[in-house]
């Protein structure tokens, strides 16, 4: 069991340092902290102008969504950068559980996502004057962590697709754009057509944002447990999907001898 935790924890951190190697402090701050804050401000001002919803709706929703950049692209990098750096074969030659190796890689990205979401929420609350009840902070932190983890598993599932298809970055870019539209973070779910609403229910962030909004509104943890449980379920579903896809595509690429040739 200790070995498994070491594989998941230490392995995940080492892989993070190796595969997320494009970040410098300036890049991290610019791309992952300042970028999401401006995204939040853009939608908050657009929402103000159109009168669609109040600032709280946009601040909380976009703060939860801010985790997606690190989590979706991080999860994708956790798999696809192995191929780019020519180390995928070595990882797949390892006799250890592939599921543990790859699922462990999501943890540092989820940690990143949580940091980004908390920073974005704090900065935006300060800039736009949102008051968050102090009593809601622990549950809010838990909600942001669950949403980030759920999003990380979503990113890993997309990364698994990279074992089979070459243009996984296209899939990641489009997915991040779709999260903006479908999660109800910027357009209230009631205003979306039924098909989009259903798609949103199956995506990470949707339920997490709902839970966070209820907590910030002071409705208490009890009112947020439903959406929070739904977010946990979505995250688990993507973890299982990612593990299954990794297994299937690994077997397929071994069979076709196409591991490094796609």
């Amino acid at each position: 069991m200790t070995d498994l935790f070491r594989l998941v924890g230490t392995g995940g951190v080492i892989a993070y340092r190796a595969l997320f190697n494009w970040t410098t402090p300036a890049m991290f701050v610019g791309t992952l902290l300042v970028g999401p804050l401006f995204q939040l401000l853009f939608f908050a001002y657009l929402g103000r102008q159109l009168g669609v919803a109040d600032d709280r709706f946009y601040i909380v929703g976009n703060a939860v969504l801010a985790a997606t950049l690190a989590c979706v692209f991080g999860g994708t990098m956790a798999v696809s950068n192995e191929r780019r750096f020519g180390t995928l074969g070595h990882v797949l030659l390892s006799p250890r559980s592939r599921t543990a190796v790859f699922l462990g890689r999501v943890l540092p990205y989820a940690g990143n996502g949580l940091l980004i979401a908390v920073t974005t929420l704090t900065a935006a609350s300060f800039l736009l004057g949102l008051r968050v009840p102090v009593s809601a902070l622990p549950a809010l932190l838990l909600t942001l962590a669950v949403a980030a983890l759920s999003c990380g598993f979503f990113g890993l599932a997309l990364g698994a697709v990279g074992l089979r298809f070459r243009d996984v970055w296209l899939v990641s870019n489009v997915s991040v754009a779709l999260l903006l539209l479908l999660t109800g973070v910027n357009v209230p779910a009631a205003e979306l057509p039924a098909g989009m609403r259903v798609a949103g229910q199956l995506l990470p962030i949707t339920h997490g944002a709902e839970a966070a909004r209820r907590l910030v509104a002071g409705e208490g943890f009890g009112s947020a447990t439903g959406p929070l449980a739904a977010e946990v379920a979505v995250g688990l579903a993507y973890a299982v999907l990612a593990a299954a896809l990794l297994k299937i595509f690994e077997a397929e690429s071994r069979r076709r001898a196409s591991l490094d040739t796609l």
């Binding site: 410098t24 890049m27 610019g30 791309t31 401006f38 853009f42």
Partner: peptide, 11 residues
Amino acid sequence: NANALTNTLEY
């Protein structure tokens, strides 16, 4: 660190 600025300047 031009890439950092590029990613930041969109919104």
